[in-house]
Structures are given as structure tokens and as C-alpha cells.
Design a protein around this nucleic acid. Structure first.
Lengths: 252, 252
DNA sequence: CGATACATTGATATTTGTCAACCCGTGTGG
DNA sequence: CCACACGGGTTGACAAATATCAATGTATCG
């Protein structure tokens, strides 16, 4: 999920939402010009985090919601015994921290995977704005609903798929997200370590490594450290019994 | 999660929120008298579902959000290949269907586990009400955040804990929820089958069965079909390396 | 009372995790 | 400039956990 340097630099400049290249992928996507202007008003700061730095930490009081502007981050929760579970990887445009809204304390941590710039939305001011812009409330609920649905999908994958399928599904997911961001869907850099990825997929690092070399032997994938090239998207797709997203049955 | 018949009958009567015995556990918990009255206005019907009946089905257009009034339900998602993953069991007071708010179509299904009565909230009218009662919007976001945090906790458990610990954690969770509802925390009926429970915990039915008999042999649990009696809560707790909920570190 | 769905138990197969060694690219300091 | 140490990644041998298959039990309901 490394973003080419040119894009990273462009996004790192402080830029109004209305001119931000993420506006179609970000919160303002459903808002009017006027509403977007008001939203800009609650962006308290646009910070930058170095790899490994915490955006926020589990247990901490909720101060800001964050939107990734450039770079990428992981979010994770930590059990009492110290074991961690990575629950997501985040690309530009994603809203982080919603799970803190019940307790007003973060129930998960977010850590930058690379040099990452964000928009920080003051929680109080954002909350107040939601009551004055009816549409913003709808937009945020939609964002929460999307995360919920994605988490459920993840539960399905982790619960029902074997290690090899999980890895393939992950690669397809990244591929689709890269495409949505205007990047190549067949060649990209992963911004997380093998350890992080294995933890996310709930398999051992070693197992993941073996799977990736197996995919290479099968001939539809080339992996060199974090660089990934999918040489046959169809065959990668075929390695998953069936793709969940493709043919949802619509009942009315 | 079988609710004693007396309670079931009482709740099955159509009752105003302000007199409902769930009001402390349900959406109105953060609302004023006046706001609660308005909320009652969007309860379009209070239906009853028989065991196995769908409240809603994945793919279906969103019409209603549901609150369980009495009984219990499971929610699940179905993959293209037909495999299912149960993502939650729901007791009275829980709000179902939020994950449909992005697509305006249900991304999961909900099925009654026993005879179950619900309050059905018209989605459109509820949405409109959220813009007129600022506090309701906050309340719903908190509900969504709680579900998110719970799902993340589930991901941690499924990703990091072994089968036996998962089962123990589940029993402790039910115990706590029964207590919150004013029932015994050491003796209750499960409303789901072994198959459903095993699927939820992402283990095989047979493995779950063996684990429960093992717990019996250890002497801190008695299980007879769906009836569960915890004969030593401390020892059940001890069978989990450490309990996540107990000692969250609070950072400020 | 018998049919049926649900549940348990035992024997065995498979998957995946664990442990240990090794590789390789990067950066540091002599 | 080279030696070496370090983090991250890979590979192999083996062990453990759990799934699967098959048989048997046992409540439940018409």
C-alpha cells in the first residue's frame, strides 16, 4: 500500500477538502460545497506520523477522529495478556476511531505503517456539526455501517476459509482497493510486515510465507519482500472457492 | 438465553417505551420523556417471529431496524458458496440491522432462535427523527460504536484464543449478559444449537461438544443439552488465561 | 411409537503452529 | 571499505490442535 512519492507529497500539503484529491473517496463525498466548508472548520490539525508512531492508543480518551490523508495505518486491539490482534489496514480516505464513540475512549489503537499524514477532526466539534448538518450524520452512519459490514466479512473469511484462501482474498482485496485509488491493481507494495499480515489473517508468519511461495510456484504471483505483482488475476481469483463480493443475491 | 415465560408474556404485550421493562437497556436509555414519546412514533409494528423465521435476509432492501423485545435471535452472513458465519446472538434491547445503513440493503440476515417479539423501526422515519432529536443521533452512533468494539473483541478472541478458551469466554459473556438482564449469572438456558454456537466460535461441533464435557469433568460446569449451570465461576474464569474486560488500562 | 433433528463419542486425517536454522538486505562502526 | 550485527523473511522437521468421518445416543414432536 505504499503510495507513490509524488502523490504522497501532493497530499501532504495542507489542502482544502474541496481541492483534495481524495474528496471522492472521503467523508465529503456526500456533502455539498457549503457543508464541506463547514466540515473543514472542524479539522483541528493535519499531523504527520512516522512509521510505528501511534495515532491513538487503546484506553486513551477520545479527542480526535482521524482520516488518513496519505500513507497507511493499521489498527489493532490488545488483550490483557498483551496479545494483539490487527483488525484492519487503512488507506487514504478512511475514517478511524469510530469505535471509541460509545465509551469516549479508544477501544483500539492505530499505528502508522509508513510516513502518514492525517486530518484530525475534533470529536466535540464534529459531534456538534453532525447535529447542524443533517446529511453529515447520515454520512457518518454510512461510514460506520460500512466498517461493520467489512468486519463481518472478515469474520466470515477468518471463520470459514483456510489459510491459503485467506491470503488470496487479502491480495484480491488490496488489489481492488488500489484500483479504487487509481493505482495498478496488479502491482503494488504492501506497507505491512509479514508478521502484521499474518496476525491480521490469524495465521502463523511461517504459514503465510509458505503460502506466498506456493502462489509463486503456481505461477500467478510474484513476491519480493513487500513488492507484489499479480501475474494472473483470474487464477488468483480461482484460488478462492468463490468471491463473496461478486454475485450478491438481491432480494426485494 | 431462554427468557422465563412470565417475562416473555409481559414483554409481548404492546407496551409504551416509557413503561417497557427494557427501557434501561434499550435505545431510550439516553433520551428524555419527550424524546422517548417521539421515538415511539416511529415504531411501525411490534411483530412476533417463530423459531427459524427471518427478521430480515441478506440482500433484502432495508425497511426496518429491529429491537429485540423478548426472545433472542442470531445474525449471520452467507458467502456466495453458501457457507454461513454467525456473527452474533442478540438478547432483548439490542438494535439489529445497522450494518444495512450504507447500502440500504441488509448485508447480514437475522433469524429468531425462539419465539421472539420485536419493535420494528421504520428506517426512513427513524432517520428523519435522528435529524430532529440531536441526542438520538448520538445514541445510535454509540450503539454502532459498541457493536464495532464488540466485533473487534470477537476478532481478537477468534484470532488469538484456542478452542477451549473461546468456549469459556463465550460462557462468561453470556453469564455477564444474563446478569445485566437481571437473571442468574450461573444458571441459564442457551437458545442456540451446538451447531450455531460452534459456527459462531469457528470450531467444529464435535470439538465444542468435547470441550463442554471436558469442562464438566473439570467440575466447574454442568451442561445438559441447552441448560448450563456454572458451578464455579472463578474456575471458569481461570480457564481463560486472562479476561479482556477486567483490567483495561486507562490512559489519559 | 417411530421418525427426526440434535448431540456425543471414538478413531483417524489434515491443517497449521512451533522450534530452529538459515538467508539476505541494510545500516553501523572500526 | 569491509565485517558484522540486526530485523525481517524464508525454509525444513516435527508436534499439536482441530477437523473430519462414522457410529451411537437421546430428546422432541407429530
Amino acid at each position: 500500500m505504499n503510495i507513490p512519492a509524488s502523490v504522497k507529497n501532493e497530499a501532504a500539503r495542507t489542502v482544502a477538502c474541496s481541492h483534495c484529491n481524495l474528496r471522492k473517496l472521503c467523508l465529503p463525498k456526500g456533502l455539498t460545497e457549503e457543508e464541506t466548508k463547514q466540515l473543514e472548520g472542524v479539522i483541528e490539525n493535519t499531523g504527520t506520523f512516522e512509521p510505528g508512531e501511534y495515532l491513538y492508543e487503546q484506553g486513551e480518551r477520545l479527542r480526535f477522529l482521524y482520516i488518513v490523508r496519505a500513507g497507511s495505518a493499521k489498527s489493532l486491539i490488545t488483550a490483557a495478556d498483551g496479545t494483539e490482534q490487527i483488525i484492519g489496514f487503512h488507506l487514504p480516505g478512511e475514517l478511524l476511531g469510530l469505535d471509541a464513540l460509545e465509551q469516549r475512549r479508544h477501544t483500539s489503537s492505530a499505528i502508522a505503517l509508513e510516513t502518514t499524514s492525517v486530518c484530525a477532526l475534533s470529536h466535540e466539534r464534529f459531534d456538534r456539526l453532525c447535529t447542524t448538518i443533517p446529511h453529515l450524520h447520515v454520512e457518518v452512519m454510512m461510514e460506520a455501517a460500512k466498517i461493520l459490514a467489512d468486519d463481518h466479512e472478515l469474520l466470515l473469511v477468518l471463520g470459514q476459509k483456510k489459510a491459503e484462501e485467506r491470503a488470496a482474498i487479502f491480495l484480491l482485496d488490496v488489489s481492488a482497493r488500489m484500483k479504487a485509488h487509481g493505482f495498478s491493481e496488479i502491482e503494488f507494495n504492501l506497507s505491512m510486515s509479514r508478521g502484521d499480515l499474518a496476525n491480521y489473517l490469524s495465521i502463523a508468519r511461517e504459514t503465510l510465507s509458505r503460502i506466498l511461495t506456493h502462489f509463486e510456484q503456481e505461477g500467478f504471483l510474484q513476491v519480493k519482500r513487500r513488492h507484489v505483482r499479480i501475474t494472473s488475476l483470474p487464477r488468483l481469483r480461482a484460488s478462492v472457492s468463490r468471491c463473496e463480493h461478486c454475485d450478491a443475491v438481491l432480494i426485494d
